[in-house]
Amino acid sequence: MSIPEPLTDEQITQHLADLPGWEREGNAITRTFKHSYHETVHLAMYVAAKAREVGHHPDIHITWQRIRFAITTHDAGHQITTKDFELARHIEAIAAGHGAEPA
């Protein structure tokens, strides 16, 4: 399996423009959603299943009625790659399907 190439700052900015609500935090992209505590845990499980399927995993942080996803490509030296944006799009779809709202 080949290691994806890190994106340039300009490429990251372009990709973020296509994913409203996602932000760059250092060498990761992040987004926080709000929902009931139970539903945030449920959402985490669905995202974890998709992450296993695509072979790319976000960091997930759950607090009271909030869930935060942070994505970076560990295999590329903790850099941002196209794999991160592909996973972010999956997370967006899953969150929308569960009625999660932007935080």
Rank of each mutant, 00 (worst) to 15 (best):
E86I: 06
V54W: 02
H42Q: 14
W64R: 07
E5A: 13
E86C: 01
T72W: 08
W64N: 08
L43M: 14
V47I: 14
I91W: 03
A76Q: 11
T72R: 09
H15V: 03
A44T: 11
E39R: 14
D84N: 04
K50Q: 15
E5I: 12
L87I: 05
G21K: 08
H61G: 02
T82Q: 09
D59Q: 15
E23G: 06
P20A: 09
F69G: 04
D59C: 01
A95P: 10
I71F: 12
R52V: 11
I3Q: 08
I62S: 00
V54T: 07
M1A: 08
Y37C: 00
H38A: 07
T13Q: 14
E10P: 03
P20T: 04
P102D: 05
E101V: 07
G26K: 04
M1L: 06
H15Q: 13
D18I: 02
A17R: 14
I91M: 06
G21M: 08
H57N: 13
R52H: 15
P58D: 00
E86S: 09
D9K: 13
A93N: 14
G55F: 05
A88D: 04
A70V: 05
A28T: 15
I62R: 01
G99I: 13
D84W: 07
M1W: 01
A96K: 12
K83Y: 10
R66W: 13
K50P: 07
P58S: 01
Q11W: 02
A100G: 10
E23H: 10
K34Q: 09
G55L: 03
G26C: 07
R52K: 14
R52Q: 15
F85H: 06
R24L: 03
P6T: 07
A28N: 11
R89V: 00
A44I: 09
E101P: 02
D59A: 14
A49D: 14
F85K: 05
H42I: 14
M1C: 00
A95L: 05
A48V: 11
T63Q: 12
E23I: 13
R52F: 14
H61A: 12
E25C: 06
P20V: 06
A103R: 08
I29R: 03
H61Y: 05
D84E: 04
D84G: 00
D9Q: 12
F85T: 02
A49E: 15
H90D: 13
H15L: 03
I91A: 03
R31M: 09
V47S: 10
E5S: 12
I91R: 03
D9F: 05
W22K: 11
T72M: 05
R89A: 05
E92N: 14
E53I: 04
V47E: 10
D59L: 12
E25A: 11
Q79C: 11
Y37F: 15
R66Y: 13
K34V: 03
E5D: 13
Y37V: 06
T13L: 06
